[in-house]
Computed example of a mutant assay.
Amino acid sequence: MQLNTIQPADGAKHAKRRVGRGIGSGLGKTAGRGHKGQKSRSGGFHKVGFEGGQMPLQRRLPKRGFKSLNATFKAEVRLSDLNTLGVSDIDILVLKQAGVLPVVARDVRVILSGDITTAVNLKGIKATAGAKAAIEAAGGSVA
């Protein structure tokens, strides 16, 4: 292949439609615009969603809710989940790999739900007061 032999693919190029060029072209007289009305005139324009003056659909429907741009992806972990991991040093990455946390979770907190018997060391994870007491009673620590 040479630079002077490159061609567009078959069907990629086609002749531009020329409107208003007489009866024989098939697009003469009204030039494909139909008869009368705002859209047949030059400069005939209305914005997307315009319904001829009727209250548009997007304004007839009620407004509901919003999505905060400042929302952090919070997640909670039970003590019983920590007990089943079988790992002594626990951080967010360990919890995500074990499938306890969703991948998008950023702010993680351990809550007092279930019981814990193994000693675990939490690193970079918050814990409620009750959960912290239970972890320390089992011989673990919260850092």
Rank of each mutant, 00 (worst) to 15 (best):
A31G: 04
G32I: 03
G32W: 03
R33S: 10
G34H: 03
K36D: 14
G37V: 07
Q38F: 01
K39A: 11
K39E: 08
S40D: 09
S40Q: 04
R41Q: 13
R41F: 00
G44Q: 10
H46A: 12
K47D: 08
K47C: 02
K47S: 13
V48P: 03
G49W: 09
G52A: 11
G52N: 12
Q54M: 10
Q58S: 09
Q58F: 12
R59G: 00
P62T: 05
K63M: 11
K63I: 12
R64M: 11
G65I: 12
L69H: 02
A71I: 10
T72D: 13
K74E: 10
E76P: 00
E76A: 07
V77K: 07
L79A: 07
S80M: 05
L82M: 06
N83F: 03
N83L: 05
G86L: 03
G86P: 08
V87H: 15
S88L: 08
D91R: 00
D91G: 01
D91Y: 01
I92T: 12
L93G: 06
L93R: 11
V94L: 02
L95P: 02
K96R: 14
K96S: 12
Q97Y: 00
A98Q: 07
G99C: 10
G99N: 09
V100W: 00
V100H: 00
V103P: 05
V104A: 14
V104I: 10
A105Y: 04
D107V: 09
D107E: 15
D107C: 06
R109G: 01
V110G: 05
V110R: 01
I111Y: 06
S113F: 08
S113T: 13
T117S: 13
T117R: 10
A119T: 07
L122C: 05
L122I: 09
K123N: 15
K123W: 13
K126A: 14
A129W: 01
G130R: 08
A131G: 09
A131H: 04
K132P: 00
A133R: 14
A137V: 07
A138Y: 04
